[in-house]
Design a protein around this nucleic acid. Structure first.
Lengths: 222, 222
DNA sequence: AGGCTAGTGACAGCCACTGACAATTGACAA
DNA sequence: TTGTCAATTGTCAGTGGCTGTCACTAGCCT
């Protein structure tokens, strides 16, 4: 069952039966309970038993929905990622790669917020980033997931440009640069006082503007 | 005891007593046993008990030397990181940041190889990168460690330029970009056939050359 | 030589995670 | 409606990473 959620949703969605609805409810309850406990008490100090108890299921059931404690933590993040990948796919092919990534992100925010809200309060999701940044185990998992996401996007970019990712390093390089900036932003934003989506959005745009000047390196001429 | 290795070595190294030498030997034996087992059998399929048995100590003793199985895996990598940081510190301040990083890395390779050899065969260390890339848990840990390293280096760069990392995002951005390229290189190199230091060195230089052209984005004009 | 202390092993226990089996409970046809 | 089948769940037992505790041994220092 793990991983077979609606990420692999059928094209023609038949009205889900009771069984399916119940499953979704359980899953969402688990995710929400997990995020609430994590943000209140911390990731490490929350046991899977705690989460299961809060959702009123057995520990074994928790692991039938999520392959690991970590996976539950990032379930919501996954929704956001899919949105972004789709946005990149939808960009007109004549845009330069870095531009396309940038605009895709800019136009994704609202859709992401909406998708997140369908499972947990947006605010909870945003506050959870602070937990990620301050928990080594979670940060590690987050970075690995980001790397995987970058790989997916690099393939999309390569396809747009008619290149082979395994021959030409440029797609991976641009995407890596883009991802690096986004992560620096997340980090700075998460320790800053304003945990709002608007603040994240603006900080991202601002930092992306810094890439060119930062690389040319005449920092002392301003 | 964990973490108090010679990273925090005394300035005037008094001739180490028997106790100290024995400790170092035990630690190195553990590291070597761990890397050998990891590369032969895989990380997950090697238990801490296996490593401890191979080094002829108890499991408890293993955990007195290393806070986690993961830490033993990255002990050698830590040596390499320190060398690099020092090399960055040693670069003349008039160099542009990205240049300084690049040259620091270029001049570090030999010293790193030497430092590694003092603990395990260089070849073993290099082959271990394949294990890292193909083991999710290790990759996650590796990425987190890289992020920490980048933070340290960002501070060095900021200092060189007389900037405050918490105010000006540029130091973190350059370093992140540099780190991203290095990681893309590691990844491609680790799946490629040639697991030699020379190959890694060349691939790194080549990929760093790609940053500028990849960002400007006129990919179809060549 | 003898006390001091760092290093070690043995043991017990917590927590993430997994396999196996039995009990429930939706789904669907008779 | 009812009976059957399959999906979902709970219980139980076990593995592996990791930690606290305690007694014991072995370098070190006077």
């Amino acid at each position: 069952m793990v991983g077979t959620a609606e990420t692999t949703a059928a094209p023609a969605a038949a009205p889900p039966g009771l069984r399916e609805r119940k499953k979704r409810r359980t899953r969402d309850t688990l995710v929400r309970a997990a995020l609430e406990l994590f943000t209140e008490r911390g990731y490490e100090r929350t046991t899977v038993d705690d989460i299961a108890a809060a959702a009123d299921v057995s520990q074994r059931t928790f692991f039938r929905y999520f392959a690991s404690k970590e996976e539950a933590a990032f379930f919501v993040g996954r929704l956001a990622e899919s949105r972004f990948v789709e946005a990149v796919r939808g960009r007109p092919p004549e845009e330069a790669p870095l531009d396309a990534l940038r605009r895709a992100l800019a136009e994704s925010w609202d859709g992401i917020a909406e998708a997140v809200e369908r499972v947990v309060p947006l605010d909870l999701h945003l506050r959870f980033y602070q937990v990620i940044e301050s928990t080594p185990a979670l940060l590690a998992a987050h970075l690995r997931r980001s790397a995987e996401l970058e790989e997916r996007i690099a393939r999309v970019v390569a396809e747009r440009e008619g290149l082979d990712v395994d021959t030409d390093p440029r797609p991976r390089v641009v995407v890596a640069v883009f991802g690096a900036v986004v992560r620096v932003t997340e980090r700075i934003w998460s320790v800053g006082g304003d945990a709002s989506l608007a603040a994240l959005r603006e900080a991202t745009a601002a930092h992306l503007d810094q890439v060119e000047p930062a690389l040319t390196g005449d920092w002392r001429t301003d």
